[in-house]
Measured scan of single mutants.
Amino acid sequence: MLEGKVKWFNSEKGFGFIEVEGQDDVFVHFSAIQGEGFKTLEEGQAVSFEIVEGNRGPQAANVTKEA
């Protein structure tokens, strides 16, 4: 699992990017966010995740919000 911070997330469109120190930003789709209820992320929020190869390159999977 990697750790990063949410760079930005558009809850209307359901996607955004996660910043990872020393690496390129990683695309995140709302469907990759773990948990119940409305799936969104806040700018600057700490998250842990895995990287998988998507249709358009690397993207986040199994995203969990850090306490």
Rank of each mutant, 00 (worst) to 15 (best):
G4K: 01
G4M: 01
V6Y: 01
V6H: 00
V6I: 10
V6M: 03
K7L: 06
K7C: 05
K7V: 06
K7G: 04
W8F: 08
F9W: 15
F9R: 01
F9Y: 09
N10E: 05
N10A: 08
N10K: 09
N10V: 06
S11A: 14
E12K: 14
E12T: 14
K13Y: 08
G14L: 02
G14S: 02
G14A: 03
G14C: 03
F15P: 00
F15C: 04
G16T: 00
I18N: 00
E19F: 13
V20D: 02
V20C: 05
E21R: 15
E21I: 14
E21N: 14
E21G: 11
E21H: 14
G22I: 04
G22C: 05
Q23R: 12
Q23G: 11
Q23D: 09
D24T: 10
D24M: 13
D24L: 12
D24W: 11
D24R: 14
D25R: 05
D25C: 05
D25S: 07
D25Q: 06
D25Y: 06
V26I: 12
V26L: 09
F27D: 00
F27L: 04
F27W: 07
H29W: 06
F30Y: 12
S31K: 11
S31L: 08
I33V: 10
I33C: 04
Q34E: 15
Q34M: 15
Q34Y: 08
Q34D: 12
E36M: 10
E36P: 10
E36L: 09
G37H: 06
F38V: 08
F38T: 08
F38M: 08
L41I: 06
L41V: 05
E42F: 14
E43C: 06
E43V: 13
E43G: 13
E43M: 15
G44D: 06
G44S: 06
Q45S: 09
Q45H: 10
Q45C: 05
V47L: 06
V47G: 00
V47K: 00
V47Y: 02
S48V: 13
E50L: 10
E50S: 10
E50M: 11
E50Q: 06
I51R: 07
I51K: 08
E53N: 11
E53A: 10
E53Q: 14
G54E: 07
G54P: 03
G54D: 09
N55T: 13
R56F: 15
R56E: 08
R56Y: 15
R56Q: 14
G57D: 03
G57L: 05
G57M: 05
P58N: 09
Q59H: 10
Q59E: 11
A60Q: 00
A60H: 01
V63L: 10
V63E: 00
V63I: 07
V63K: 00
T64G: 08
T64M: 11
E66P: 13
A67D: 09
A67W: 12
